[in-house]
Lab assay of single mutants.
Amino acid sequence: LELTLRVGDKTWHFKDVDEEFVRHLEELLKRGAHEREIEEIIREWLR
């Protein structure tokens, strides 16, 4: 999967994204996660 995600003024483009990561992001967005929380999840995933 490829994913382009825009949060606030930042845009990330990922290739070979894990479906579990996408589901986790979807859940965060559904519950109205704040920009900082989403950025933290992305940084963790990139490690």
Rank of each mutant, 00 (worst) to 15 (best):
L1F: 15
L1I: 10
L1N: 15
L1P: 13
L1Q: 12
E2Y: 08
E2M: 07
E2D: 15
E2L: 06
E2A: 06
E2Q: 10
L3P: 02
L3N: 02
L3T: 04
L3Q: 02
L3A: 04
L3Y: 10
L3W: 04
L3M: 06
L3K: 04
L3G: 01
L3C: 03
T4R: 13
T4P: 02
T4E: 11
T4A: 07
T4M: 09
T4L: 11
T4H: 13
L5V: 15
L5E: 00
L5N: 00
L5S: 00
L5A: 01
L5Q: 00
L5G: 00
L5Y: 02
R6C: 06
R6D: 06
R6S: 13
R6G: 04
R6H: 13
R6Q: 15
R6I: 14
V7N: 02
V7F: 05
V7D: 01
V7K: 01
V7R: 01
V7S: 02
V7G: 01
V7E: 01
G8W: 01
G8I: 01
G8F: 03
G8S: 02
D9I: 03
D9Q: 07
D9T: 07
D9Y: 02
D9A: 06
D9K: 06
K10H: 12
K10P: 00
K10Q: 08
T11P: 00
T11A: 04
T11G: 01
T11F: 07
T11L: 12
T11Y: 07
T11K: 03
T11S: 04
T11C: 08
T11E: 08
W12V: 01
W12S: 00
W12E: 00
W12Q: 00
W12K: 00
W12C: 01
H13D: 01
H13Q: 05
H13A: 04
H13V: 13
H13I: 10
H13F: 11
H13G: 02
H13L: 06
H13P: 01
H13T: 11
H13E: 03
F14A: 00
F14D: 00
F14M: 04
F14P: 00
F14Y: 01
F14S: 00
F14N: 00
F14L: 15
K15V: 07
K15N: 07
K15I: 08
K15R: 12
K15P: 04
K15Q: 08
K15F: 07
D16W: 15
D16M: 15
D16F: 15
D16C: 09
V17H: 08
V17N: 08
V17E: 14
V17S: 14
V17T: 15
V17M: 04
D18I: 01
D18M: 03
D18Q: 06
D18G: 05
E19A: 15
E19N: 07
E19F: 15
E19S: 14
E20S: 14
E20M: 12
E20A: 14
E20G: 15
E20I: 13
F21H: 02
F21G: 02
F21Q: 04
F21A: 04
F21N: 02
F21D: 04
F21E: 02
F21C: 02
V22H: 03
V22E: 01
V22F: 06
V22M: 05
V22K: 04
V22R: 03
R23W: 08
R23P: 01
R23D: 04
R23V: 06
R23Q: 07
R23T: 07
H24W: 11
H24L: 11
H24F: 11
H24T: 13
H24G: 11
H24E: 10
L25S: 01
L25R: 00
L25G: 00
L25Q: 00
L25P: 00
L25F: 01
L25K: 00
L25T: 02
L25V: 08
E26P: 01
E26M: 15
E26C: 11
E26Y: 15
E26D: 07
E26Q: 15
E26G: 11
E27R: 12
E27D: 13
E27P: 01
E27L: 13
E27K: 12
E27G: 11
L28Y: 05
L28P: 01
L28C: 04
L28W: 05
L28S: 06
L28F: 05
L28D: 03
L28M: 12
L29V: 14
L29H: 04
L29W: 06
K30E: 08
K30R: 14
K30W: 11
K30D: 07
K30V: 10
R31T: 09
R31N: 13
R31G: 12
R31K: 13
R31Y: 11
G32R: 03
G32S: 05
G32I: 04
G32E: 05
A33R: 08
A33S: 08
A33Q: 07
A33N: 06
A33C: 11
H34L: 10
H34S: 14
H34N: 14
H34E: 12
H34C: 05
E35V: 14
E35F: 11
E35C: 06
E35G: 06
E35I: 13
E35L: 11
E35N: 08
E35W: 14
E35P: 13
R36L: 13
R36A: 14
R36M: 14
R36C: 05
E37K: 06
E37P: 02
E37C: 09
E37S: 05
E37F: 08
I38L: 08
I38W: 03
I38V: 12
I38T: 02
I38G: 01
I38S: 01
I38F: 09
I38C: 04
I38E: 01
I38N: 01
I38A: 02
E39G: 05
E39Y: 09
E39V: 08
E39D: 10
E39T: 11
E39L: 08
E40P: 03
E40N: 11
E40H: 11
E40R: 13
E40M: 11
E40V: 09
E40I: 09
I41D: 03
I41R: 09
I41G: 03
I41F: 15
I41N: 06
I41W: 14
I41C: 06
I42F: 07
I42Y: 07
I42R: 00
I42W: 10
I42G: 00
I42S: 01
I42C: 02
I42E: 01
R43Y: 13
R43C: 05
R43I: 11
R43Q: 13
R43L: 13
R43V: 11
R43D: 07
E44H: 10
E44G: 07
E44T: 07
W45F: 12
W45P: 00
W45Q: 03
W45C: 03
L46Q: 10
L46H: 08
L46K: 05
L46P: 02
L46W: 07
L46Y: 11
L46M: 12
L46S: 05
R47W: 10
R47A: 11
R47I: 10
